[in-house]
Write a protein that binds this DNA or RNA. Sequence first.
DNA 1: AATAAAAATGATAATGATTATTATTATCAA
DNA 2: TTGATAATAATAATCATTATCATTTTTATT
Lengths: 126, 126
Amino acid sequence: MNFSKQRELILDVLRQNPIHPTADKLYELVRPLMPSISLATVYRNLNQLVDNGSIRKISGLDGAVHYDHCVEKHYHFICTCCNKVYDVPYNVAEDLEQKLKSFTGLEAQSTELTFKGLCSDCQKSN
Amino acid sequence: MNFSKQRELILDVLRQNPIHPTADKLYELVRPLMPSISLATVYRNLNQLVDNGSIRKISGLDGAVHYDHCVEKHYHFICTCCNKVYDVPYNVAEDLEQKLKSFTGLEAQSTELTFKGLCSDCQKSN
DNA sequence: AATAAAAATGATAATGATTATTATTATCAA
DNA sequence: TTGATAATAATAATCATTATCATTTTTATT
């Protein structure tokens, strides 16, 4: 696998800011470190990193796709108030693909489990 | 709850075409029955139907939001080849919200579980 | 039934996220 | 060093969705 400076930087910044950012947010984070970088380059490299399995997409949020530097099996909780994305450990629901197969015969290549609700921060402030 | 002719028609067509269509696809299906209807009206009414719990959104597909006339608890399988959305019965994974709560303390208002892979049709044709 | 108020519509402009295009630049093997 | 290939920055184009607004429909009230 070949890495351009831009792709390396994007991956580094994503790994050092595990906040499940959007492409736009990542652009904002990367720009101070490489002011000449283009938003299109951010999108292009994020897609490539997803394709080669280095990172993961999180969809299901309002509009924009978010990116996850963690490729270990886990799930997500999205706060309906502040829109923050929280990680949910895998042991909340294990072997879903296996259950899918035994119930339906279908074989899953990937599984996305996302909960929505109020996070504890937003519960307090209401 | 109040229903305009347009809203009633949109809901009817969605219920009679349980193919998890996008707003655009639904517009295409409704137009022959009411040629004067506007795409904006389709979007507006779909949002209202979602808000009052008559239908559900499915996100996580490439780009567009899909709509589900079935509000019973269930999950989805999306074919990575033909992009069709299949229903997955609830008993594949029950009480996920309860498990989430006991593991993390978080309370989910909604849960979305989506598998991706090749459907049996697409497996055959490859 | 008449009518004022409220809600919904159709048409279309505007927005926001993402992808495509294109001319230019970086990388690297021969 | 050259030529081939891949990647880039800039920006135009696309696609899904929402906002706007003048007009029409529905609803409630007299």
